[in-house]
Design a protein around this nucleic acid. Sequence first.
DNA 1: TTAGGGTTAG
Length: 779
Amino acid sequence: MRVHVVKRASDLDTRVPPHVQRISISNLKLTSDCVHRSVKGEVVQKGPVVSCRQTDHLLKAVIQDKDTQSSDASQNTAIGVIFFGTLAKDFSETVSQGDIVLLSGFTISKSPTEQTDGLHPCLLEMSSTDACVYVYSSNVVVSSLPAVVSSESRYTYVPLNELKPSRIVNVYGVVTFFKQPFPTKGTDYCSTLKIIDKSDVKVSCTIFSERLEDHPKIFRIGDIIRLHRVKAQMFNGSMTLLTTLGWSTITFDGRIDSPIEPRTSSRTFHFGEADKHAVEELRQWAASQLLANESTVPLSSVHPKMFFDLTCQLLAKASMDTRCMLLKVWDGTKCAYPLLNVAVAPDALEGQCSPSQDRENMIANVLVYDNHVEGASKLKPGVFLRLFNLHAVTQRAPEQSAESASSLCFHLHGGTSYGKGLCVLPSESPEIQPLKRLLEGHVAVTGEDEVNDATLVDVWYTPPEALGQFQLLHIRAEPSEVVNEDFYTVRTCGHTLEKVSLAHVKSSTAPVVCHVRAKVKSYQPQNLYQCLKLFCPQCTTLMEVPNDEIIARVFQDALRVNQPCGEHWAVTSSVDSIRMHVSCEMVLSNTHTQLLFLQGVTLEEMCVISAAHSNVVPVCSDDERMRLLDFSAPFLFRRDKRYYGCKRCSQSTFVEPEVSGVEIWDEHNVAKSLGVQLMQYALLMKFELEDETGTLEALIWEDAERFFQVTAADASACQASQDKVQITIDRLHPPGSSMAERPWLDLCLSAYTVEENSSNQVCYQITNTEARGNFYTAQ
DNA sequence: TTAGGGTTAG
């Protein structure tokens, strides 16, 4: 064992043989004599153990000298280290990020990545039999302020007033300014932001990444950001933070009462209790400093000439010219000034606006210019948006005479000054729940169906029509191929078709079934829990699975009217304020323990009680009659599984459950006895496929359970099933992988048409395909 | 590598 753990930091120096002399990282040179020398530093990055032909295994880490007090940014205090063979494995198992290590028996070579990672120009190699690691696991934070420490991960967060040039650090901060990512002259997009923390020091941050989805998801001033592995640097006399290799970020809503949900595109981030605590503390502090975010301005409060941020839903869009795009949006409020209607030909407009929205001065016409056109052109009608630094401009439409009153139009001018830009707000984001309620309320009042659930969700959520008759492309036997046993897909359709290119699929006339060989370029949604949907087989409504916050609220609402109910068919027993009802008929047939009706419980109590019972239905009372709860909550709890009823297709009241003839109760006969239309769990994802001829977006929906080899109902409750889906995704699209590294997939694709906005759109679905391989066992 | 906040001028 060449990795030795020591109990005290001071042991690092005393355990090393006396003839071994320390050398500071910044003093290391290619020509340095490394016999009987040691270096000490904190592990600021630790990579995975990687297999390689030459040496079996290797692991790369970065250590940083935290002892040298230096403000000279030119000093390289962080250096890459490569551990080879069994030492790589030992290091991986014993050492964590944040630990202090002392290394001896290394050799020095030139770093091949000096230009790209900004680290020390040398590299330490730990491969000889003399190579030895002493490690001290540190939880100690050297800081004058109470720094935030995650005990689970031992990440240390440096207060912003303690940043030192050239140090790679982790920080938390409240966002005081931000710009949406914009293209640089290099290869990346750049986000610039400014953050502040309890030390009351503001620091500018510059984030480079070529992937837009990796940029921090900041929606408003006051959001909280966590940055890992960013480098402190002086610029123009001020401290700044800059992304380094291996950086990562997550962001949070900064408002005190909103749920603490990390926003990130990464699926491997660490987020524990300590992080939750850090966010809560920063929220409290920001509120006390009046840093609390200002809400965006509703259309009803807008006046001419002002610059403001608008949270809205996109109704329709049209390209005006290459440098200008028109967005027609609304936020459910009526503007106090007449709104300009920019006229465009109906066939040039994507999406729809209802005449009543128009009549009531609720549709804002937004002209988006220059650099914002690229982002705007990707937007689908129905999405929720935040537009930053919109300019309210009074102008007349070309057809208006000079005498007529001018109207308000909104411009998103070119450039990024003052944070000008736009971003899509996720449909489930707490940010937009009030807006959604407002819009849905307005639709209900006007009785119109132009803006219904189908337009509130992205186009791709729309479930396709049942896959009908398809013509088969190119019937011919295909040659067998060598498969990668770790991960591959097989088609189970039995069609004997020649594989065709994606370009060929796109040029074919739907409906058609094709076989293709493609890789996954990207997929949506990034968060696994968002793949899980509820689907009504009766009316084809597709909806998100409500979160516990929403469900708990329904239970709370029901508690407010917790009066006794007198149902002739039920016998009732009470414990404190909780009432349990069972059917008299079921008592007689001795099946009453299978189906309980519970009244006066919180969601938490429901979960505890249902864990021990097969079927529990939460109920409330209304005018002494038993009622089901609002269908936003499950109508049935079956141990760890929850079942929902369709709001449209279920009866909200029941007179008496139909119980005769049922011996074993399950979700189907409980639903039937209560007049509830059971919603099915379903998995829905979208893959962007790519082959040599192009890309194509395909849903995985009707055959998703077959593809992932799990049932959606299990995925709703069972960790092992969720893991199976996640592992499958990680195999077909390994995190951080290049296209070259991803596996080729054999897929059966069905092309079909769906009618949308009275035109037919061709959609693609992966059908009859199963993921297989030795991928259940962890590496 | 890139950018390094501070209004378009439609």
